[in-house]
């Protein structure tokens, strides 16, 4: 199939940037979206042009490195699928695809389609863990964890930290991302001792990074490649209230 790609090109953070249109021919439906871009980049190199910068690594939908907003939707048209797992059979001959970076105040553009998502790391550094040093623990089966809790914790912990939720949100809110981590740890017995302080610190950092507030647009859930439910945002809100009431902060 032949396609028209309108791709966001931006030399660096200071550059204003803009769309450039490329025609690509002979795209195979079994190719992945990123393989289609690889082919375009080889062509650009042959033509002596600057290839398009985009992030990717595992190409298996798990590392969270790939991004891209395709025709206005982070990770493109398929539900619960990252850009790297999207295949060209999602499109048909003659289609036009607009390709943009993940946009958010907290995600400055590095180059073209590559953005800086380190704000998400800093939110987790603020408290998204259980403070246990190597070598301390008791036998793993000492504390039973109900299957349901383990499964729900896993549902939350499936987050790949790609930032699609943030890119999709009109407020660029990071609530689903933070909710996933807070819920994962709050659901497990091991996460209890730091339950209150964790949520306080992470929410404070989230605000400091310039992520917006959640006003229940639910776009985040719709685009999450791992299908993380907004029920976890409800859980995060309960955790915030619980922590306020307990007067820890």
């Amino acid at each position: 199939m032949d396609l028209k790609l309108k791709i966001w090109r931006q030399k660096g953070p200071e550059d204003k940037g803009g769309f450039v249109t490329y025609e690509v021919k002979d795209v195979h439906p079994d190719q992945s979206f990123l393989e289609m871009l690889d082919d375009l980049n080889v062509r650009l190199i042959h033509e002596g042009e600057d290839p398009i910068a985009f992030d990717h690594d595992c190409r298996e939908g798990i590392c969270g490195m790939c991004s891209l907003v395709l025709n206005g939707r982070p990770h493109g048209p398929w539900d619960e699928t990252t850009t790297c797992q999207l295949h060209m059979r999602a499109y048909k001959d003659g289609d036009t695809i607009t390709i943009e970076p993940f946009r958010a105040k907290a995600f400055p553009v590095v180059k073209d389609l590559v953005v800086d998502r380190s704000a998400m790391d800093r939110v987790l550094q603020a408290g998204g863990y259980i403070s246990v040093a190597t070598g301390n623990p008791q036998d793993a089966n000492t504390i039973p964890v109900s299957k349901d809790d383990a499964e729900r914790a896993m549902d939350a912990s499936a987050c790949i930290g790609c930032g699609a939720c943030i890119a999709s949100c009109p407020n660029a809110s990071a609530m689903l991302f933070v909710a996933a981590k807070v819920s994962h740890l709050a659901l497990l017995p091991q996460g209890q001792p730091e339950r209150m302080i964790r949520v306080d610190k992470m929410v404070a950092q989230m605000d400091a990074e310039g992520f917006g507030a959640c006003t229940n647009h639910t776009e985040c859930e719709a685009v999450c490649p791992k299908g993380i439910s907004i029920d976890f945002i409800a859980m995060l809100n309960r955790e915030i209230t619980r922590s306020k009431l307990s007067g820890v902060s």
Partner: peptide, 22 residues
């Protein structure tokens, strides 16, 4: 064996049986 203990303490949500064991 220490690895499994360590990871469980960190909150790694390993698969469990109904009785709560790994």
């Amino acid at each position: 064996n220490n690895i499994i203990d360590q990871c469980v303490a960190q909150g790694v949500p390993f698969a469990r049986e109904y009785g709560g064991m790994l």
